[in-house]
């Protein structure tokens, strides 16, 4: 049917246009990072890695990157420990209100993160610990735990229940069973959840921006702030570094365990 044919072509066109639209700013950032000029043209007036060296030699940028990394790492580890335990409880329905508790644990995902950010700002200020690193880590942990829980639950559900039964009957206590049987099989799901959690922490602005101490900043917050001062290709370079960091984390995780089904 003629109109169907036309319809098909139109559909494909829209689809590809949308996909291209989605990639656009990323390409632009990469382009800006290697352009010699501080304004962008197509084709670029010259290619250079100059801006990268500016960023990599900038003490402030390095400090911000370092802060982002340890913050993301520590909060992910904390979220993993606490989240897996909670997921175990929910999965095995060990408490009567398991479903209700599960909703509570996932609540940080529903609340707008800016609200959490300002609530914690007030809270830490009242406690006199405004700007503390521990507070920042705990805040990020709360924020990212739902990702760990969701992935862990998915992983736990895919493990055959009779495996833990078998381990118990063979003489393993509850903790041994978890360590020897459940944990190894949970690895792909944990990595998936952990990765998502790590990236969420790495990218966070609405919570970090309220809780950072006077001489502290994270990479996204720094980029956020510096844009107010005008567009500078070194910002593009810093952004590119962030893209590369995220991409690297993804590839490492996928290589280590094929985890895409648990996202």
């Amino acid at each position: 049917m003629k109109s169907d044919r036309l319809g098909s072509i139109a559909l494909a066109a829209v689809a590809f246009f949308v996909v291209a639209f989605l990639q656009l700013p990323i390409i632009v950032v990469l382009l800006a990072a290697i352009s010699e000029t501080s304004y962008l043209t197509i084709p670029p007036k010259g290619l250079t890695l100059h801006w990268f060296s500016v960023v990599l030699n900038d003490v402030d940028y390095l400090a911000a990157t370092w802060t982002s990394l340890w913050l993301a790492l520590l909060s992910t580890l904390a979220a993993a420990a606490v989240g897996v335990m909670a997921a175990l409880m929910i999965h095995r329905k060990l408490l009567p209100g398991a479903q209700l508790l599960s909703s509570l644990f996932m609540a940080p995902m529903i609340l707008p993160s800016i609200v959490l950010g300002v609530a914690l700002l007030h809270y830490f200020a009242a406690l006199g610990i405004r700007g503390s690193s521990l507070g920042l880590i705990l805040a990020h942990t709360v924020l990212i735990v739902p990702y760990v829980i969701r992935a862990s639950l998915s992983g736990l559900q895919s493990i055959d229940g009779s495996l833990t039964d078998a381990a118990r009957v063979l003489g393993a206590g509850p903790i041994e069973t978890f360590r020897l049987v459940v944990l190894p099989l949970l690895k792909p799901a944990l990595v998936a959840g952990g990765l998502l959690a790590f990236v969420t922490s790495l990218d966070n602005v609405p919570v970090s921006i309220f809780l950072l101490g006077a001489n502290q900043t994270t990479l996204p917050v720094k980029i956020f702030a510096s844009v107010e001062q005008g567009v500078d290709p070194s910002v593009a370079a810093a952004s590119t570094l962030l893209i590369l960091l995220t991409g690297a984390a993804l590839v490492i995780a996928e290589r280590w365990t094929g985890f895409h089904k648990h996202v």
């Binding site: 700013p25 632009v28 382009l31 790495l202 990218d203 593009a236 952004s239 962030l242």
Partner: peptide
């Protein structure tokens, strides 16, 4: 694109849409 930082994406749009943008 979902995995990339919102800040980075916004920056990309700035570079695209600014008066001296792409």
């Amino acid at each position: 694109p979902m995995l990339l930082n919102v800040v980075v994406r916004s920056f990309g749009w700035i570079a695209l849409l600014a008066n001296r943008g792409l």
